[in-house]
């Protein structure tokens, strides 16, 4: 009995203290006065007098978020960037996953490893690799000038386009793997049956293959969309001053402006936005797990 208690309580308390409690603190600071939380910040952590705390609760920081349109624009533009790049990741990832699922059996482990390998490679380095490619004297421009497609170098680095490219590139494995595993389980004879019954190949693909890989598409899309929404590294390295993303705003609010209550309020709102896709994602995973059993 003692052993079971220990087994449960050690990871439980670890997560309670280092995962849940910090969120409560963020929530608390987001509701506290800016004046109170100027360094050394001690008054914000006075847990003994909760009554006084509740009386002093104020939503000033959240009001501030609605007043300054920087924040609204940042949330909206993060959503836009996340949606568009998820769409392009799907557009590029699906054909790759499809090709992998149709490849000869003995190739598949190698192809699989080729998809996973970038995932093990440093995220920062993969984003950095694009800085040399997209800059105005970078390889892409050199190549396009050489082929004669363009006569003036394009400005791609430090624009939203570069952010889209960065997100698609770094999150592509997250899209490919769930779709591949859904397609891999599919029964090939279903396509043959559809074709025998008079479907064209394209129609058979649309009516049979796509619906059967639906769970993979949903899982992959959430795996790209959720982290892309709060992304910080990609917009700060590839994006420009005009690229508004909430992860970057939170970072700057915290490290440059040192406004902790506002940074906390930004985090709370971001979390509220993410609750919906996270719950949908969990439900999809659960459904899939049940279907497998």
């Amino acid at each position: 009995m003692m052993r079971r208690f220990l087994l449960i309580s050690v990871p439980y308390f670890w997560l309670l203290i280092l995962f849940l409690v910090p969120f409560v603190i963020v929530l608390k600071i987001s509701l506290s006065d800016t004046a109170l939380s100027i360094p050394p910040y001690t008054p914000t952590f006075d847990w003994s007098d909760m009554g006084a705390f509740f009386r002093a609760l104020d939503f000033e920081n959240f009001l501030f978020l609605t007043e300054d349109d920087l924040y609204w624009k940042a949330y909206l533009s993060s959503l836009k960037i996340a949606v568009i790049s998820t769409f392009f990741t799907l557009l590029i990832g699906y054909p790759i996953a499809y090709g992998m699922a149709r490849a000869p059996e003995e190739w598949r482990p190698t192809l699989m490893m080729l998809v996973i390998l970038p995932f093990w490679t440093s995220f920062l380095i993969r984003v950095y690799a694009w800085m040399g490619i997209l800059s105005s004297e970078g390889f892409l421009n050199q190549f396009l000038l050489w082929t004669g497609i363009i006569s003036e170098p394009l400005t791609i680095l430090n624009t939203n386009t570069a952010v889209y490219i960065g997100i698609v590139y770094t999150y592509l494995p997250f899209m490919i793997l769930p779709i591949y595993s859904a397609l891999d389980r599919m029964d090939g004879s279903l396509i043959e049956a559809a074709e025998d019954l008079g479907c064209s190949r394209l129609l058979a693909f649309w009516l049979v293959t796509v619906p059967l890989s639906r769970n993979g598409i949903i899982a992959g899309s959430f795996l790209v969309f959720i982290p892309a929404l709060g992304e910080f590294v990609i917009p700060s390295l590839l994006g420009g001053s005009g690229t508004l993303m909430i992860g970057k705003v939170l970072w700057e609010e915290f490290f440059s402006n040192r406004d902790w209550p506002v940074a906390s309020a930004v985090a709370v709102v971001l979390l509220l936005i993410l609750v919906i896709p996270i719950v949908l994602f969990q439900r999809n995973q659960q459904k899939q797990a049940e279907a497998e059993q």
């Binding site: 963020v26 600071i29 982290p227 910080f232 992860g247 939170l250 970072w251 915290f254 985090a267 971001l270």
Partner: peptide, 13 residues
């Protein structure tokens, strides 16, 4: 699935 900025901020606090 938590954005890293939130995890980082909350742990620091």
């Amino acid at each position: 699935v938590m954005p890293e900025v939130i995890t980082g901020l909350s742990l620091l606090l």
